[in-house]
Design a protein around this nucleic acid. Structure first.
Lengths: 184, 184, 184, 184
DNA sequence: CATGAATGAGCTTTCATTCAT
DNA sequence: CATGAATGAAAGCTCATTCAT
């Protein structure tokens, strides 16, 4: 791909993230084009359908999340890594309308599904590690963690929680996840 | 209002709830009219904009929830009323696409805001009663409960959790809310 | 259907026939709406897709043709009815770009297919009657007649034959169809 | 013109013929470029508009037809040459969506018009020769032959006749063209 | 010369809303 | 009051054409 095309692709992705973050996924592709400073045709050249554009955003987000997870997994305090990761993700969700809507979207294609699976596996690693470290209850399964993560993110996303409310809400969920010992 | 007009109003509301529950809030007003068995003009006679229709639905839902809350508040086991109510609401959310999306919607008018406030007060009653009964931790505030309720409902709504996952997820949240004694 | 709606429906059909006759089936629906003096939405209210509009035109044309065939079948000179009918149809085709393009169109839905079948049957009646009258050769089958009809219509349609050329061309085809006796 | 440019020109023409034969003249220029293995810009370098490309194809086809006609004119059985040529052309039309549509297209430029005239002359030669040989009726004029040729080609083209139907249809037309003696 | 990214007018289709019947 | 036909502004998407690389 040529340098200018690559630059435009990135500008479109950035514009799309911003626009969809502002107005939700029903915002028009035209607005994305305008924000990116390109013509509408250029957006559709790079992403042949609106779905494709949304999926590309999602893929990017998931990629970044995987990156963060890798860091946390390499952390010194494995028992806390899951909590930190979830808190970070919720924080991001509160700023991006796109993330969570897309996480729960049905009918994503294979590439994206792969990314999701990789995210699942990353979270599973954090979960297992926390359970081995004794901070998370043994009877907690991956599905519930994902469910809670999705739910809390969507809540944060739509309700526009402030930092304090976010912290307090997570505190409750974390208390529910922790072992008696983990609660200190 | 004449009797037939009143009857139409109710049929439209019922149809709208059903349609939006099925297809989400992007379903067309025309479809609501069709399901109600009236012409499109009649819908707009009763609800001058689509927003107004959505708000009316929300008001109705909130009213019914208030009713349920009154029952729970009058229950024998005040310590468990909050948990039961939350569980019931999440269960409904999984079946109605409208409820939660609307709960978090911005730009509601005064009348609806009043209903929301009343719902808040109802939940607060349940919360306080639970705390007095010693089943919910003293440091939990109303805002977090609402936040969790909204979040979990939205999660259940979009992700299509099955009954088991719903139960397990709520179990974690409830564990986070309960006092050590309440966990038994 | 209300009177004004019926009137609009007819104006749209007439406009569509005119526009597609002028510019072929790639002419825009917008132009049809403009020519009919209605908004674009009105066209799509009556004919939910462009295909539906084209099929409606075709159905109308076929209907008129069936009517003509009924007349010819009731005629005194059964041996000449087929020739007259074919000549009439070719004449019309020379003035309407739509007719023939649609006659040969693939993928028409059931309703239209029914109409086509009825037209086939009508032509078959004319053919059999001509053969019984001894003016058309016994070894001529319905398929060839339809094929010739379609082909000649398309030729007349696109090449803009004048009356004389049309007559001379048909004379050749008719000579090919006739029995030696029928040629007189 | 440089050798590689010439080679590209030919590849584009071949690709265009193939693509338009497959999908009709509404196929996109981009697809032609892809099939030719060149970039879209290269297509427009050689043929400044889509129309120009279509006309170039037509010119090529006409040229080839002239070649074939020369062969037939030099044939031993001059009385049958016209019939053979027409049959051959119809057969091709059934396989190439472009030929006939373009043959009847209006607005061709001078160069192409010249080619058409030359084709006319070739057919005229075949016609005259057949009439001299006594197989085609004296009162048949060139215009009707061209008209029949165009019409039958278009019919075959759009309706997708099978070989048998094609043969039977042509048999009728040929019977109409032949002298009583020629029918033997 | 070839490339292929960018353009933008134009297309079909949808839907909230209005208003004559 | 109810009806439902008409409206027309978008929306998503396509494609012939241009021009910087």
């Amino acid at each position: 791909m040529r340098a200018d095309a690559q630059r435009n692709r990135e500008r479109i992705l950035a514009a799309a993230e911003a626009v969809f973050a502002d107005k939700g996924p029903t915002a028009s592709t035209e607005e994305v084009a305008a924000r990116a400073g390109v013509a509408i045709g250029t957006v559709f050249k790079h992403f042949p359908t609106k779905q494709a554009l949304l999926q590309a955003i999602m893929k990017g987000l998931l990629g970044r999340l995987e990156g963060e997870m890798a860091e946390f997994a390499a952390d010194d305090a494995p028992g806390e890594a899951l909590f930190t990761f979830v808190a970070r993700m919720v924080e991001q969700a509160a700023r991006k309308r796109t993330v969570v809507g897309l996480l729960a979207e049905t009918g994503v294609d294979l590439q994206v599904a792969t990314s999701v699976r990789m995210l699942r596996e990353g979270i599973e690693t954090l979960l297992v590690r926390s359970q081995e470290a004794g901070t998370v209850r043994e009877d907690v399964r991956l599905d519930e963690v994902i469910a809670l993560l999705t739910g809390i993110c969507q809540g944060a996303l739509h309700a526009g929680w402030d930092d304090d409310l976010q912290r307090r809400t997570l505190a409750i969920v974390f208390a529910g996840l922790r072992t008696p010992e983990g609660r200190g």
